[in-house]
Simulated assay, not measured.
Amino acid sequence: MTEPVEDEVFRNEDWYAEEITARSYTRCSFSEIDLTESITRGAVFTDCSFGNVRFNASKHTDSAFTGCTFKRCNLFDAEFEGCKLVGTTFTECELRPMRVLGGDWSFAGLLGADLRGTSFQGVRMREADLTGANCVDAVFVDVDLSGGQLRGSKFARSDLRGSDLTAFDPFNVELAGAIIGAEQAAMIAMALGLEVR
């Protein structure tokens, strides 16, 4: 890990295809930065803010963005593998078609996010805020969504196999056409007050 960077402001910089490996940033502000096709490996961003940053086609492996805020950022075709985004919030961001494999996104704030066609696999998303999120045609396979805030969210035609759906209220979440397993179906039926025999 290189010498940590703290309380710095980065603005209007071109970091196109930059490789950020084992660097640490704390309470830093990134504004109007081009990180298109950038790569992070083992990088740590703590309590940082990203505004109008382009992450298009970027790839992030074993990196951490904890307690960070993303506002009006573009993550088109971005990939996160084994990353930690605990407590990080996304506001007015372009997140399609983002792909997430593994990692911890617990307490992440995705209020009203457009997640249509995105993919989350094997991700821990405990108590994530997906209130009003549009997850139509998305993949949430083997995802821990326990304790999540899901009121008004749409999961129509999404793949939810293997995921923890205990926080799903069928009366407040749109699930038409969603793909689930037999055990999940029994749980949803019980939530509807049905008796499964």
Rank of each mutant, 00 (worst) to 15 (best):
G87Q: 06
F120H: 08
A156Q: 11
Y25C: 13
L101H: 07
A108Y: 03
E3R: 13
V5D: 06
F50R: 03
E195R: 15
G102T: 12
A185T: 12
L115T: 01
A22N: 03
C83E: 00
F55N: 07
V141D: 02
A113I: 03
N74R: 05
L115I: 09
A128V: 05
F107G: 01
A128H: 09
T36G: 13
E183M: 14
L165D: 09
D104L: 08
L175F: 12
L115S: 03
E8R: 13
R126G: 14
L145N: 08
G51E: 10
D129G: 06
I188H: 11
S163D: 10
A78S: 13
E19T: 12
E18R: 15
R157S: 07
F107L: 13
D62R: 07
D34A: 03
F80V: 04
Q121F: 10
D104Y: 09
D62H: 01
A113H: 05
E174C: 10
L111M: 08
A156I: 05
E13W: 02
Q184D: 04
E92T: 08
P170N: 03
T21Q: 02
S146Y: 06
E19H: 12
S119A: 06
C93D: 00
H60C: 02
L150Y: 05
F171D: 13
R157M: 10
L130V: 08
G102R: 02
L75E: 02
C73G: 01
E127T: 11
L85A: 06
T88D: 11
D142T: 09
Q149F: 12
V53Y: 00
F45K: 07
A133C: 10
V53F: 00
D7W: 10
F90V: 08
N172E: 15
G148P: 10
T66S: 02
G193P: 15
G177V: 14
F76G: 04
A43C: 11
L35F: 05
A57R: 12
C83N: 07
L165C: 12
N12T: 07
G82F: 09
G148M: 05
G177M: 13
M187P: 01
A17F: 11
E81V: 12
D164I: 11
G152C: 08
E37C: 07
S24P: 00
E94F: 04
R41H: 01
V196E: 04
G132S: 06
E195D: 13
R27D: 15
M190D: 01
R11G: 04
G162L: 02
A156C: 12
T88K: 09
E183L: 15
F80Y: 01
G82C: 07
D104K: 04
T88W: 11
E8N: 08
D169I: 10
S24D: 07
M1N: 07
F107H: 12
A57F: 10
F76N: 06
G117M: 02
D34E: 03
D7Q: 11
F30E: 08
C28Y: 08
R54K: 01
G193K: 05
T166F: 03
A176W: 11
T118M: 13
E13M: 01
E81C: 02
M190P: 00
L110S: 02
